[in-house]
Design a protein around this nucleic acid. Structure first.
Lengths: 143, 143
DNA sequence: TAAACACCTTGAAGCCACTACAAGGTCAAG
DNA sequence: CTTGACCTTGTAGTGGCTTCAAGGTGTTTA
């Protein structure tokens, strides 16, 4: 199977696949005589795993850790559970942050109703006068 | 006022301020004889505005648009309202996405309870077998 | 047989909003 | 006169790709 076919199966681009190879997420493929990458069913499985993890917003580091854990069958799946739990915590944190953000934005938005002059616009005043304090530390890799 | 003092007031680093200048968000400062940047109250106000927008997770493009709108007092604040409304919509979209994500992760997590072998781990199976389909288009710049 | 076209190769640069670092200049205090 | 805090410029790194350039390969059609 050539790279384009694999890309279609995995719903991603050929560039992404080559990028995963360079990152060490996907093992290198065999090559044809023409130096084309040639993929097997194991690559399909691995790539699907990676894409699913990405769809769940895991970082490449998290995915690498997960792949290492699944490739070490001796260890059982305790480590896997922990990793997923931590990732769920990231998502939770980010949801809370965004809810707070929305509350702030909604409050700001309510400062201005009509088509008044910019000088009197409560939004502009709010944005100028707010003092948000130090940037809060990041508790999640989710943007 | 030198750059370090401004950075303290605005709760950011000197590098960030120089970066905003290069980006065209913050107007260039006067220079002292020693070629140090020298800032005025107007810079303080502008930088605070920018940092507040960033604290609300606006992109530099959104901030630039907002600054242009506030600098054109003739136009009233309709455009400003629209921009904020759109930004709130971004945040809402992202919250919904993350909630869905959490639901998926929670379902996945429930596939595995104990310390079984990796081969039988429902999480690993889930990650291998899910087929998440095409990556959904981004409706928000929020990560 | 040749041209057109789809596919493949590598490598480098761009995206965003910074952050970090290197190598040096300026200035006040001890 | 040295220490140390501050300033200057420029470059490179972050993550997860995406885009581009310049070319090689392989199949189909005229």
């Amino acid at each position: 199977m050539k790279i384009g076919e694999l890309a279609k199966i995995a719903h991603c681009t050929t560039e992404t696949i080559r990028f995963y190879e360079k990152e060490g997420l996907l093992p290198e493929a065999e090559r044809t005589e023409a130096n084309y990458r040639s993929y097997s069913a194991r690559h399909v499985e691995r790539l699907r795993f990676i894409r699913n993890c990405r769809a769940l917003d895991m970082t490449h580091d998290e995915i690498r850790a997960l792949l290492r854990l699944t490739d070490a069958p001796a260890d059982g799946c305790g480590g896997i559970n922990t990793l997923i739990d931590e990732h769920i915590a990231h998502v939770d944190t980010r949801i809370d942050e965004l809810k707070q953000l929305k509350a702030q934005l909604t409050t700001l938005r309510e400062q201005c109703h009509g088509e008044q002059a910019v000088e009197d616009c409560g939004i502009v005043q709010g944005l100028t006068e707010m003092d948000v304090g130090a940037t809060r530390a990041r508790h999640t890799h989710l943007g």
